[in-house]
Every structure is written in C-alpha cells, then in structure tokens.
Design a protein around this nucleic acid. Structure first.
Lengths: 228, 228
DNA sequence: GTCGTTTACGAGCGATCACTCGCATTGGGC
DNA sequence: GCCCAATGCGAGTGATCGCTCGTAAACGAC
C-alpha cells in the first residue's frame, strides 16, 4: 500500500471536493448508482473528468467518500446520545420521536437516501456499510441505555432490527405523497413503539404502563391526539 | 405493438429456458446483478451468447423472467391464503409461523433472494417489483382476514409494513451463521407478533389475550394483560 | 422424404465507461 | 519574483458488455 502522503489541499481543492460530492449525490438521488458515472459527475460538478482523479483515486473511493459524508451529516443531525436527558428520563414515545424525527427529516430531504440507506444490491452494499454502521452504533448505545437487562448480543440484535425497520420504510416514504408519508411515518412509530415497549426500562410496566394508543387498534378510532 | 407471435417452443427450448434462468439465478446469488452479464449467463448455462436471444429479447427481459419465476415459486411454497383454516381459526402466533416459515425457508435456500427481495438500487428496483407485489398481495388478503376492522388503506399499510420488515431482515439472515440466524428469525417473529397483536381479531383481547412470551423480555417478567 | 420452424453457434460490432497522460495554469511559501 | 506543488483540462485508451448476424444443424408436421 504505497499510499503517498496526501497532497496538502488548498482551499480551492477542498471546495472542489464538496462540489464533486454534491454532484455525485444529486446524480445518485436522480438515477441510482448507475447514473453516478465519472464523466457525468464531472459534468455535473462543472469540471473536467481528469480533475476528478486529482481528488479521488477511483470511482470506488469517490462513492466511499460520498457515503462517509452522508453518514457524518446524518450523525450530526441526530442529536440524542445515551447521555441525553430524553434518553435518561423521557418515556419511550419521546425517545423514539427524538431519534426518529431528525433522521426522517434528513433522510427525506436527501434523495440519495434511497441508495445510501437501503443499499441492497448493485455494488452499493460495501459502500453503504459506513452509513449503516454509524446508525447502528448510535442505536446500540441507546438500546443499552434503555434496556440494560439485555445481553450484548440481544442489544445488538434489537438495535439492528430497529435500524432495518427504519431503513426498510425509507423507500416507501420517499415514494409517497405527503398524506401517505405522514401515515407511513406514524405506522413506523407504531411498529417501533410496540416492539420496544416490552423491553423498555427493563420490562413492561417497570415504571408505569403508558397507555399505548395505536393509530389503528380499535374500531372506536378517533382517539389519537398526539401526532408528529 | 409489434409483438410478433411467440414461437412455438419445443420441449428442448423450454428446458433451455429453465437452464438459462438457473444460470442467471446462481450468478445473481453469487455476485449481485452486476455479475449477471449475458455472456456469463450463456457460459454458465453451457450455451452460446447468441442462443440467449432465442428466448429473451434483451437482458431486461431475462431479468424480468427470472424475477417472475422467483415470485411464482415463492408464492407456491407459501401456502396459507385467507381461506385456510389456520388463518380463520388459529391464533396469531400460528398464523405468523404458517406464513413466515415457508417464506424464510424458500428465501434462505435461494441466494438470489438477497438481490430479488431487498431490491434497493442498481436497476433492480423495477425488476423486483413483481416479487414484492406478489408477496404484498398475499399479505393484504391475510391482514384483511384477520383485521377486518381496518380500512383498505390501513390494511395495505400494515401489509406493506410487514413485507418491508420481512424483506429488511433477509440480508441479515443470509449473512448470519446458524445460531445467529435462528435468533434473528425469532426476533423477526417478535417484531411481527407485537406489531400485529393489537389489531389481530379486531383488537387486543377481542377473543382472548394470548400469552406473549417474548424471547428478550426480562426473565422474571411474563406478565401481560391476561386479566380479561 | 420435404419444408418451414426452432434451436444453436460464436465471432465481432458499437457503445459505454473508468481511467490516463501530456500539458497549461494557478497559488502559496520563501 | 521564483519555484514547486496543486489545480485544471479533455481527447484518447483499453476493456467490458449488450447485442447482431450469417450460417447451419435438429426437429416436427405432412
């Protein structure tokens, strides 16, 4: 690995990098990974194809940098960590909202989320790993804080499951119109709420059994007051 | 459109088609959609590249046929329909098992599931649609049978959610070793159970509150709303 | 048998795409 | 002002890949 010392970037170069990643991100959001062709990225960023390789040694590295930047920004907007007040003292609904709201907001504002969050097939899997890991690590810490009775493996499993559930709903959310999107987001909260409630705070009713008012539970609907 | 009448296939030709799809499926399972190159499929099937186009007009059609065959086989092994006894009379756990077991079995036996079930990005999305639709339609019927109190839109949403939760766990299941795989499958059941229990049979305790014994709740806590 | 259709071949065409190379320009440190 | 690294260009290269085409054998119906 003769990785020569990275060149000392000038301000201009750093700005270029951002521009390149911006172009790549928009292409990724518009046409999936296949649309992220090097020439297309260069054109979108307003530079020459050759200049791309001034900053990224190959396509893989560009995509990796794109995923890294996405993961960092996502982590930056999803504030609650295990030491936050909400996580320590809030009830489950509050914690779920505190985690989910910023993530949904960021995810839905960035069309490239479809490719970077769901990953799936197409060579994206390896690239998407940093994103998934960043999210999962945060969730592991959160689950550990709220459900300390779980073993390490169980904690990881629960966190992973939550991550998967979230990721799986992202494409549907991106495709839906505003009304359906809100309904889906609510449904996502219901899934997580019902899944986590029995293990939260060491078990059901450990503190106080909060009335769980599902959006679709009983025939006598209309009882829902708190939304997103 | 100028769709010329399909040629009258001889037995040999039909066998070839299966062989081609087998080759494509194995390639898809091994290296994702990028590995499903026409020349590679031909080599894997032991025929000439030109012969592929005797049966499929282009790559897209081959992939579509592959997805269609996968969806049909998946539907064939997942027996319970809305009219089945389990769905009519069984408790929720039994229904979940009856639906999930064959699907998991089929999915885990076929490595191409990773590409065909999760879909995601990479041009697979359009191709994967028949698979997703086939599964979702079945689930909609099932949810409608067990939760008739839901509106059409709610039913679809719940079914879609279940489908997504299932699909999202598939890659993790495929990657895991046997022990972790069993644990994940159990966790998947827990998620679905807790999600669906409040709406099953028209609501919680509508018939009789079934004891829910989660795999990861705190050891001494088995209490649940059994007083009904 | 005869004839038209189906099956089969495989070299090669055209297009795409990641990446290179030679060279010109700019900017910062001294 | 000098110098070297950083920045910038864009036509071109090699490889890959989907697909075609001319040809020929195998098959089925009569």
């Amino acid at each position: 690995m003769g990785a020569m010392t990275a060149p000392r970037r000038q301000a201009r170069g750093l700005a270029r990098i951002e521009g390149i990643l911006d172009g790549a991100a928009s292409l990724l959001g518009e046409g999936g990974i296949e649309a992220v062709a090097m020439n297309a990225v260069a054109r979108r960023a307003g530079i020459s194809p050759g200049s791309l390789y001034q900053y990224f040694s190959d396509r893989e590295e560009l995509l990796a940098a794109l995923a890294r930047r996405y993961a960092e920004r996502l982590a930056a907007v999803a504030p609650p960590t295990a030491t936050d007040a909400v996580v320590r003292d809030g009830d489950l609904t509050a914690v779920i909202d505190a985690v989910l709201d910023p993530m949904l907001d960021y995810t839905l504002r960035n069309p490239e989320s479809r490719a970077l969050v769901v990953g799936g097939d197409g060579g994206l899997e390896r690239i998407v790993e940093p994103v998934r890991q960043a999210v999962t690590e945060r969730l592991v810490a959160l689950v550990a804080a709220r459900a300390p009775q779980l073993s390490g493996a169980e904690t990881r499993r629960v966190a992973h499951m939550c991550d998967r559930i979230f990721s799986a709903t992202v494409p549907a959310l991106l495709d839906a119109d505003d009304a359906e999107r809100a309904a889906l987001a609510r449904e996502l909260r219901v899934v997580l709420q019902r899944y986590l409630e029995p293990i939260d705070r060491g078990g059901p009713g450990a503190r106080r059994a909060r009335a769980l008012t599902p959006s679709n539970a009983s025939p006598s609907r209309r009882r829902r007051a708190s939304g997103g």
